[in-house]
Amino acid sequence: MIVDVLVMTIFLSSTSALMALSLTIVYNSTRVINFSQGEIFILGCGMAYQIGVVMKLNMFVVAAVAIPVTALAGLLLERLIMIPVRRSGSPVAWIITTLSITLISQSLFALAFTSAQLRPDPLLAGGFKINGQELPYQILILLAVTLVIFFAYEIFLNKTTFGIGVRAAATDPETTSTFGVPVKLFVAGSFMAAGLIAGIGGWLGSSAAFVLPTDGLRFTVAGFVAMIVGGLGSTRGALIGGFVVGAMDAILRNTINPGIGELFIAAILVIILVFRPQGIIGAARTRGDA
């Protein structure tokens, strides 16, 4: 029982945190919440499954294919989402572009991945034995990779010139572009980074749990909740939000019933947005009429 809850907690926390991070990266550079981000998650696990399980190639091939493809998919999303948004000038056009990409991806995945469940092989089979139950190595790898990604991104943002440029572009794209910073290139780069992170999350996460080809939106929503709870636009917020929400969901789901978990999350989301819109650690300015 305890091991089950632990596995579930790590799975939900890590995938939510990674999805929250990739949503945050895109949000910071474009003010767009990319509803289709979860589709790259599915792309990651779908490719790992197809190459590793169906074609029986080893995991280095999986990595060599999946990593560049998910990053390129991120770039493709940038083109598909941002061109209509820039052309229409409507502050709500992103809803329709991201949702239509979700629709397209869901049907493409349903056609491409005929298997009901996408469960790639773990990087390392087996696990620790605790009270006769197994804690898979894979779930620990997922946890470790999640933490490494967050750590690396945080260093990138705060310690490199490039990262400072990204932060400047996020704060005021117009002014930043006058300093010769290629803002549009940064936007494309942030979509690629977000794609890569979501793809890795999908690949490593799905070998620890059951994922369906049409589950993309579910993971987007999980990441969205984590992002809001942690604080919109904050990297650390995404990590903390992911773990807080993931742990609560896993514990409630296993101790009471699955429905209570979802109800609780929805309630938390509403309460946070209404009473503490800056999230647990965020400090964003969110209110005001002008």
């Binding site: 629709l103 397209i104 349903a110 056609l111």
Partner: peptide, 12 residues
């Protein structure tokens, strides 16, 4: 299964 695909593509 192509139904949603066509709809999404048309929309985009």
């Amino acid at each position: 299964p192509y139904q949603d695909l066509i709809l999404g593509l048309l929309l985009l």
